[in-house]
Simulated assay, not measured.
Amino acid sequence: MRRGRSISIIRAAAAPALALLVIGNFAGYAIAGPNGLLALGDYKQQLAQRQAVLKQVEAQRAVLAHRVALLDAKHVDPDMADELVRRDMGLARPDEVIIPTP
């Protein structure tokens, strides 16, 4: 009779024990997993770095957009066109000094 009772106690405790293991597993991943709370600080640092890179890229894009506007087919800036032709085609004289603009 004691043996039958101990087996029934083990069977009764098995389901809650399994449930606790599953919940503990999920809690562990929620805290220390790759997307858990401990990784949150790392994500914030990566976000700050990428926002800084985004600012640099947007500044470069603005410079390029300005240069494209200067080369618009309807009203080309003559200085810009002259600079590009001389630099790309090698039409500068040996005594000329070409100062590239950023």
Rank of each mutant, 00 (worst) to 15 (best):
M1H: 10
R2A: 15
R2H: 13
R2Q: 15
R2V: 15
R2S: 14
R3W: 15
R3Q: 12
R5D: 11
S6E: 14
S6Y: 13
I7H: 14
I7F: 13
I7A: 14
I7S: 12
S8K: 11
S8C: 09
I9P: 04
I10A: 15
R11A: 13
R11D: 13
R11V: 04
A12N: 09
A13K: 08
A13M: 12
A13C: 06
A15I: 14
A19E: 09
A19I: 12
L21V: 15
L21S: 11
I23V: 10
N25D: 12
N25P: 08
N25W: 15
F26G: 10
F26P: 06
A27P: 04
A27I: 04
A27M: 06
A27N: 08
Y29K: 14
A30F: 07
I31V: 11
I31C: 05
I31A: 07
A32G: 12
A32W: 05
A32S: 11
G33A: 05
G33R: 03
G33V: 00
P34V: 07
P34I: 00
P34L: 01
L37T: 10
L37W: 03
L38M: 10
L38H: 06
L38T: 13
L38S: 12
L40E: 09
L40V: 11
D42S: 12
Y43P: 06
Y43M: 14
K44D: 13
Q45G: 12
Q45P: 06
Q46N: 07
L47F: 08
L47Y: 05
A48L: 01
A48W: 03
A48D: 01
Q49Y: 08
Q51F: 09
Q51R: 02
L54P: 02
L54H: 05
K55G: 11
K55M: 09
Q56Y: 03
Q56H: 07
Q56N: 05
E58P: 08
E58R: 15
A59Y: 05
A59I: 01
A59G: 00
A59K: 03
Q60F: 05
R61V: 04
R61I: 05
R61C: 09
A62L: 04
A62K: 04
V63M: 15
L64T: 09
L64Q: 02
L64K: 06
A65C: 02
A65P: 01
R67P: 00
L71A: 05
A73E: 08
A73Q: 05
K74R: 09
K74W: 04
H75K: 13
P78F: 00
M80W: 03
M80N: 10
A81S: 04
D82A: 09
E83L: 13
V85L: 04
V85H: 01
R86T: 13
R86D: 04
R87Y: 06
M89T: 09
M89D: 07
G90N: 01
G90E: 00
A92E: 07
A92V: 03
R93T: 10
R93S: 07
R93W: 07
P94Q: 11
P94I: 03
D95L: 02
D95A: 02
D95H: 02
E96F: 00
E96T: 00
E96P: 01
E96Q: 01
V97C: 03
I98Q: 11
I99H: 10
P100R: 02
P100C: 04
T101C: 13
T101I: 15
P102K: 15
P102F: 11
P102N: 10
P102L: 08
P102C: 09
